[in-house]
Amino acid sequence: MAHVDLQTGEDVAVWRILEDGALPDEAGEWLVPLGRLKDEAGSLLEEKGVRLGVLIETETPHSDLAGIGNYASFAAIRFPGFGDGRGFSLAVRLRKDYGFNGDIRAIGHVIPDQAQFLLRAGFNTSEVPEERREAFVRAVNRYKHVYQSDAQGGISILRQRHDQADTRRVS
């Protein structure tokens, strides 16, 4: 599996998942399941050189994400299957309702054809099978315009038609 920037397809740092009960055995970036992170962020952060992110499962009620920026500097939402669209709403909520501006990564099962949706929902990196890296990049650049304004600066066609000056795009 590669971990890539959705816009460029370039490699990004791999975040390791902190298993239940385990402690970070070295400095670096660790993903901690949401519940544990809330309970133990303080003590975990005392480990030297450790940066913490939150691991979010798709069934998480969005209200559990309140204040998450206080604990986590990055986030990963884990898709058990690519059809589980809750992951998209969680990312939207993180950006829109909880003002989260760290990286948000899609991990688990997502497919290239979702790349642009991921980006527009607020994800900026994704776990992708190595052989699909190129397909992700192709998909991200597929649509030059969008029909919905979004929290990432995408301006809907419905607005662009009347706002020639502002042609910011998703990609």
Binding site: F82, G83, D84, G85, F88, S89, V92, Q114, Q116, F117, L118, L119, R120, A121, Y143, V146, Y147, Q148, D150, S156, I157, L158
Partner: peptide, 12 residues
């Protein structure tokens, strides 16, 4: 138009 390729609501 709004519902076409909706980034959040394509996997309901």
């Amino acid at each position: 138009q709004w519902s076409t390729f909706h980034p959040e609501f394509s996997f309901l």
